[in-house]
Design a protein around this nucleic acid. Structure first.
Lengths: 151, 151
DNA sequence: CCTTGACCTCAACTTAGGTTGAGGTTGCAC
DNA sequence: GTGCAACCTCAACCTAAGTTGAGGTCAAGG
């Protein structure tokens, strides 16, 4: 049963800022970037839906997890177009973000292990050091005397 | 026994670039930022010591680990002034970096746990989540950027 | 000596994620 | 019906970590 539309469903930007903890200028910036699409009053002022609050909150979370605004936009593109996202929609996106997070943790753990290797051998000898050379960037550049840390 | 000073101890910027894999402009930039201090020839050209190669390599490693240049500079400040750093000096710095890394991993793990809580209860839509719900936690914090998921 | 590649400085440009300020308008309360 | 806080746009500025280009100099080989 549909709730009647109330004034509270259309919040002005200042209240958005207060409720999300995001500055007014940042909210405008997010609109600029296409992350939120408030409606406008006759006098051209922004009015936000409650689902926009959820979006902004999600932006904050995702940023903490290291996603850029454009990556976040890509996630938002998976939300249904034309209807308000449900808890289930958000859950799906959260799961996607979780896998980002897992990957980052795993990567840092690998890095830590390699750093331990470096500390252990005192090498910082980059030909051998897997941290410095994570993608085998030196190998790709052909052979030759690249004695990087042997100074 | 002291090795005689040879021409190879003073490398020009192009060779630095070749040996470290860092662009010439980036090397000049690092000097600008005070991360390295090459000497100059009579004709004002930079000449780098072998220990500078090590520094630049360390910058690359530390960047991989997520340190900013100013954080790296802070680490360099711990190196001995007036003598060439030994393997042991570098090892000490590596250990310091390792703790950075541990802290970052721990923070991400906390974040992941909180996100799991959200996924579990679907609360991104329920306005009860500690991650999502900004009203309670942020109201009293005053101006400035608010970090919802801070460590 | 002369040529030429490597070097020099300085300023402007880049991307990301915003902030700040000027100058003008809206909308709600009294 | 007016006062004034909150809103609007647009442009300029900020940091980080560099890159690019213009215009000029250095140094080494032939």
């Amino acid at each position: 049963m549909a709730r009647a539309i109330s004034k509270n469903d259309f919040v002005p930007i200042g209240e958005m800022a207060r409720r999300t903890g995001v500055s007014v200028s940042a909210i405008r910036f997010y609109e600029d970037k296409g992350l939120i699409e408030p409606v406008r009053t006759g006098g051209n002022q922004r009015r936000f839906l409650r689902s926009d609050i959820r979006r902004v909150s999600f932006i904050l979370i995702a940023q903490q997890l290291g996603l850029s605004l454009s990556e976040i936009q890509a996630e938002f593109a998976k939300l249904p177009h034309g209807r308000t996202p449900t808890a289930r929609d958000w859950r799906r996106i959260s799961a996607s973000i979780r896998s980002h997070l897992d990957a980052r943790i795993a990567q840092l753990e690998r890095t830590r292990d390699r750093l331990d290797g470096c500390i252990g051998c005192g090498c910082l000898s980059l030909r051998k050091c897997a941290i410095y050379n994570p993608d085998d960037r030196l190998a790709a550049e052909g052979p030759g005397p690249r004695q990087i840390l042997e100074a």
